[in-house]
Protein backbone atom coordinates (compact mmCIF):
# COMPACT_ATOMS: atom_id res chain seq x y z
CA UNK A 1 0.00 0.00 0.00
CA UNK A 2 1.05 3.54 -0.51
CA UNK A 3 0.23 6.91 0.90
CA UNK A 4 -0.35 10.20 -0.82
CA UNK A 5 1.92 13.01 0.31
CA UNK A 6 1.00 16.65 -0.25
CA UNK A 7 3.86 19.13 -0.46
CA UNK A 8 1.99 22.15 0.89
CA UNK A 9 4.80 24.49 -0.07
CA UNK A 10 4.14 23.57 -3.71
CA UNK A 11 0.36 23.04 -3.73
CA UNK A 12 -1.43 25.75 -5.66
CA UNK A 13 -4.95 24.51 -5.05
CA UNK A 14 -5.90 23.94 -8.68
CA UNK A 15 -8.32 21.22 -7.65
CA UNK A 16 -7.41 18.41 -10.05
CA UNK A 17 -6.53 15.97 -7.26
CA UNK A 18 -9.83 16.39 -5.44
CA UNK A 19 -11.63 15.62 -8.72
CA UNK A 20 -9.55 12.54 -9.42
CA UNK A 21 -9.61 11.26 -5.82
CA UNK A 22 -12.92 12.33 -4.28
CA UNK A 23 -12.67 9.31 -1.97
CA UNK A 24 -9.52 10.72 -0.35
CA UNK A 25 -9.68 14.47 -0.85
CA UNK A 26 -12.19 17.27 -0.49
CA UNK A 27 -11.61 21.00 -1.01
CA UNK A 28 -11.45 23.76 1.58
CA UNK A 29 -12.86 27.29 1.43
CA UNK A 30 -9.98 28.34 -0.84
CA UNK A 31 -9.82 25.33 -3.14
CA UNK A 32 -6.90 23.61 -1.43
CA UNK A 33 -7.22 19.86 -0.89
CA UNK A 34 -8.41 18.56 2.48
CA UNK A 35 -7.43 14.97 3.32
CA UNK A 36 -10.45 12.92 4.38
CA UNK A 37 -8.26 10.47 6.29
CA UNK A 38 -4.57 9.79 6.62
CA UNK A 39 -4.25 9.62 2.80
CA UNK A 40 -3.48 5.90 2.72
CA UNK A 41 -4.31 4.82 -0.81
CA UNK A 42 -6.30 1.56 -1.05
CA UNK A 43 -5.22 -0.65 -4.00
CA UNK A 44 -8.43 0.12 -5.88
CA UNK A 45 -7.60 3.82 -5.91
CA UNK A 46 -3.96 3.39 -6.82
CA UNK A 47 -4.45 4.18 -10.56
CA UNK A 48 -6.44 7.32 -9.76
CA UNK A 49 -3.81 8.35 -7.22
CA UNK A 50 -1.06 7.83 -9.77
CA UNK A 51 -2.97 9.97 -12.25
CA UNK A 52 -3.42 12.68 -9.64
CA UNK A 53 0.32 12.67 -8.97
CA UNK A 54 1.04 12.81 -12.70
CA UNK A 55 -1.47 15.54 -13.51
CA UNK A 56 -0.89 17.89 -10.56
CA UNK A 57 0.04 21.21 -12.22
CA UNK A 58 2.24 22.15 -9.25
CA UNK A 59 3.90 18.72 -8.87
CA UNK A 60 2.83 18.85 -5.24
CA UNK A 61 1.82 15.21 -4.87
CA UNK A 62 3.91 12.10 -4.26
CA UNK A 63 3.06 8.49 -3.62
CA UNK A 64 5.19 7.02 -0.85
CA UNK A 65 5.48 3.54 0.60
CA UNK A 66 3.36 3.35 3.74
CA UNK A 67 6.32 2.55 5.97
CA UNK A 68 7.73 6.03 5.36
CA UNK A 69 6.51 7.76 8.48
CA UNK A 70 6.64 11.44 9.17
CA UNK A 71 9.94 12.97 10.17
CA UNK A 72 10.20 14.70 13.55
CA UNK A 73 8.52 18.07 13.34
CA UNK A 74 11.18 20.18 14.96
CA UNK A 75 14.02 20.00 17.41
Amino acid sequence: MSRLHVDWTACDGRGLCAELLPELLAEDDWGYPVPKGDLTVPPALEPAARQAVDRCPALALRLTAVSAERAPASS
Partner: peptide, 12 residues
Protein backbone atom coordinates in the same frame (compact mmCIF):
# COMPACT_ATOMS: atom_id res chain seq x y z
CA UNK B 1 3.61 32.34 3.46
CA UNK B 2 4.22 29.18 1.49
CA UNK B 3 1.28 26.94 2.24
CA UNK B 4 -2.21 27.85 1.00
CA UNK B 5 -4.22 26.50 3.93
CA UNK B 6 -2.07 28.38 6.47
CA UNK B 7 -1.82 31.63 4.51
CA UNK B 8 -5.60 31.73 4.06
CA UNK B 9 -6.74 29.86 7.13
CA UNK B 10 -4.83 31.60 9.94
CA UNK B 11 -5.99 35.15 9.09
CA UNK B 12 -9.58 33.91 8.81
Amino acid sequence: GQCGPCVNGLPR
